[in-house]
Design a protein around this nucleic acid. Structure first.
Lengths: 155, 155
DNA sequence: TCATATACTTCAGATTATGAACCATTCAAG
DNA sequence: CTTGAATGGTTCATAATCTGAAGTATATGA
């Protein structure tokens, strides 16, 4: 039956094949997040991974294609649990910088390492294929962040 | 600032770069779904796209890395709105086959075409890169469906 | 100094996902 | 056969998540 599925997929356009692969991987990774750090919710994990350095909440919102109120909620949770603190951005005192605490750094390191491992097992790609996939994924992400919000469909 | 982000990303492991690209694309595509067929919810769109032929609900659940109750809810919505019908699987009368109606076929064709277009614009990849990305995405999806549920982490 | 824009927060409501208990059918023994 | 266990879906109550609109505080420009 897996062969059957794979066969049929071969007949679809590369774009749809790409989308289905991306969705499968996303769902698989989300599922796997449940198995590691039980303390953290999924959006909290996403945010921690993004915080490789202090960032403004607005930057995070753009980065996660999300809205400010969602970021507030997630940051609240992480702050209450001791993973980060809010500091006023000296360059614009309306804005907050989210800064990881030591506990936050530790959790982030663990997450990044686990996630890398997870990708490796879930994807089944070898080092060369992973490098190629990463190259294209980076290009895609750059394009998405560059083109910003909805794009042609600015409803 | 996009350059800055891109720079920092260059220093992350290929696995994390891949994950970030996949998440960005997933979020972007989900966001874009809002702009096309207002009638349908996101999970309904996903299910429609999967239904290139009649499928059992259990197969869909496995395919969408989801649970039966979620599939039931989504199928209920699509059935009520006239996009599909349930038929007993003659080979196992416990199971239902989800079969698209004519209206369902039309909607699916529109969705598949729109989604392909969407991928093209969101990713910014050219034809050759898209083909390469699709190849790897297909490989990843095969691996995920093959390895089935949680994997090493069968909590 | 005033009007407007930006950065974030609050909050109420909507969507979506999930597990446990359940019904119907199948399958495998005896 | 007929029983008991397994399987395919359903129901339902609950929880997690997301969102937009209205609000507060700071910044910016005329």
């Amino acid at each position: 039956m897996p062969d059957n599925i794979s066969d049929r997929l071969g007949r679809l356009s590369p774009e749809i094949q790409s989308i289905m692969g991306v969705y499968a991987l996303y769902w698989k990774l989300e599922e796997a997040f449940d198995c590691i750090e039980t303390e953290l919710s999924h959006p909290e994990c996403h945010m921690l991974i993004k915080l490789d350095q202090p960032k403004r909440m607005g930057v995070l919102a753009a980065d996660m294609l999300s809205v400010p109120s969602t970021i507030t909620a997630t940051a609240d949770g992480l702050e209450k649990a001791g993973y980060l603190t809010r500091e006023r951005d000296p360059e614009d005192r309306r804005a907050w910088l989210l800064v990881l605490t030591e506990q936050g750094e530790e959790a982030r390191n663990m997450l990044v390492s686990e996630a890398g491992d997870l990708f490796h097992r879930a994807s089944g790609l070898d080092a060369k294929e992973t490098a190629e996939f990463a190259r294209l994924a980076r290009k895609i992400r750059d394009n998405i962040l560059k083109t910003g919000i909805p794009e042609g469909l600015t409803k």
